[in-house]
């Protein structure tokens, strides 16, 4: 294992019971989680992932491989167009891949088959939740409608039970007053928090955040980031693509630096931010600090 938990204590066992994960989790329990998943079997393993657009004309990922443990919060950094978002979309199963495989909890759920087709194991894919940069709430449904749609329609959960869970989740994140609001009546920050809650309704084992604060006004970023931090405290394993270095430093237990379609550097955040190993990373960090884009 590359790194354990840092400031934020790790989860006890599987983080499936999201609704009551808030107060749980102490440093002593992280050992138990690691017992169940020996270091030889990472929680998520990405192997030799290749992905291109336009039938190979535009390669985006050129053989990406890495692992993360159940106690990890993996932050993916890198310049625009470096393949960060594509990597996350591949983990979600939104993209076809040209080669490689992705494993969750020891199960190969995304794999490039010998005939070139992409195999996605839907039952495992459903254990992954994702929130996107652009608001993806369904505009014709209320906040409540957005939250219960998939649990009721996909999982066949009783409507009453789903509503009760949704209300509990919204209360926990201070959104209960917005229960009957439509997305168009919410601020950008509220929309993203509802989107996170919607993903949590399906009790994912892994959460993916793809630049969820990039489209927000600066004053709205904090509420979304603090919600993600709260989840992290509850022990939710997550992968985060972000341009917010402060947030990255705070939440990461592992950092992946992705550029030109490959993982340039990967390791614990202390080393990454304080003493990056390669020049490309140093240049990137320097340009971010100067406030310019790479």
């Amino acid at each position: 294992m590359v790194s354990g938990s840092r400031q934020i204590p790790a989860a006890p066992g599987p983080a499936s019971s999201v609704a009551d994960a808030g107060g749980a989790g102490s440093a002593g329990q992280s050992a138990e989680g690691e017992d169940r998943l020996p270091a030889t079997q990472p929680f998520v393993e990405i192997r030799n992932l290749r992905k291109s657009y336009a039938r190979g004309a535009i390669p985006v990922l050129k053989g990406v491989g890495d692992t993360m443990s159940k106690t990890d919060r993996l932050v993916i950094l890198g310049p625009s167009g470096g393949g960060k978002s594509t990597l996350l979309r591949c983990v979600m199963g939104l993209e076809t891949i040209d080669s490689g495989a992705i494993t969750l909890d020891g199960r190969n759920y995304i794999e490039c088959l010998s005939n070139g087709r992409t195999f996605v194991d839907r039952t495992v894919q459903r254990q992954v939740g994702m929130v996107f940069q652009h608001y993806t709430l369904f505009p014709h449904l209320t906040v409540l409608g957005n939250l219960i749609l998939a649990p009721v329609k996909r999982n066949g959960e009783k409507k009453g039970a789903a509503i009760a869970r949704a209300e509990a989740l919204l209360s926990r994140f201070g959104l209960i007053s917005k229960l009957k609001s439509y997305p168009s009546q919410l601020s950008g920050g509220q929309k993203q928090r509802v989107a996170i809650a919607r993903a949590l309704m399906l009790e994912p084992k892994l959460m993916l955040f793809d630049e969820v604060t990039s489209a927000l006004d600066p004053e709205l970023i904090a509420e979304v980031e603090s919600m993600i931090s709260e989840l992290a405290e509850g022990g939710m394993p997550m992968m985060i693509v972000t341009h917010d270095m402060g947030f990255a430093k705070n939440i990461a237990t592992k950092v992946l630096f992705c550029a030109d379609g490959v993982v340039m550097e990967s390791g614990d955040p202390e080393t990454f931010f304080a003493a990056p190993k390669i020049k490309r990373t140093r240049d990137f960090l320097a340009s971010i600090l100067r406030g310019t884009k790479v």
Partner: peptide
């Protein structure tokens, strides 16, 4: 992006068509 969100929520294509696309 709504299609991506629907897949991420595990909605089948039919559910997506009926509950997400059609009402809009």
């Amino acid at each position: 992006a709504q299609r991506d969100a629907s897949i991420a929520l595990g909605l089948s294509r039919w559910h997506q068509a009926i509950h997400v696309v059609f009402p809009q």
